[in-house]
Amino acid sequence: MKLSRRDFTKIGSKIVIGAATGPVIIDALVKKAQASESSPDGDYDWNKHYWGYVVDTTKCIGCGRCANACKRENEVPFDEPVYRTWIERYRKLKDGEMKIDSPNAGIDGFTDDIPEEEINKAFYVPKICNHCENAPCVQVCPVGATYTTNDGVILVDFEYCIGCRYCIQACPYGARYFNLEKGTADKCTWCYHRITKGLLPACVQACPVGARKFGDLKDPESIVNKILDKERINVLKPDLGTKPKVYYLGLDREVR
């Protein structure tokens, strides 16, 4: 009795191992490992583009139309404190203190609640996901639900994200938020549905003063390359080594 059972397990296990492991392991490992060079859709070749973004802080008037357009373009919950882009206001007081704020991301505009006499200098800084070349959010996603596309945009797969929020913790720029409705992380896509159709991101299109510029880094004639070739630019938190692709003109040292 005992012997036959042992024999059964022996034979059974051999059959199972032989039958299951071979094809399954090959399927699981080999197929999943090969990354294709092709583009996901025929009408747009993502290998021909590499997107970049320029923010000219010296032009920004703080009207908040960018943040407004973004919420409406991308169905970002309008009444919740979650934003794919926002405008910060910096006011350096005469006593040396730096006052920073961004009420409702600037969508409702800014009001002067500190008298002008007390202010030394003041300016606005638009913020958006930096679509870092070396993105910490992509690095920390445990399941591969956020990724960098071949054209340099960082996206979130809403069907696959488990909602652990590690990426939100890892983003040094506060660009990510938790989408309560979907139960996933969410963030700016540079309007991937627009730029792959030849349109501009909604925020760039909405800006009335041209403080936001968007273009193809692979195209030497693009507006972004023209600025990068000519101007002195900076990025946010360069010391973290994230290599942002949102480049700033006129960035103050106190902007983080």
Binding site: S36, D157, F158, Y160, T196
Partner: peptide, 14 residues
């Protein structure tokens, strides 16, 4: 298909 993520999601987002 393209990297360590679900390739179909690119077009879903597009």
């Amino acid at each position: 298909e393209y990297g360590w993520y679900r390739g179909d999601s690119v077009n879903e987002l597009r």
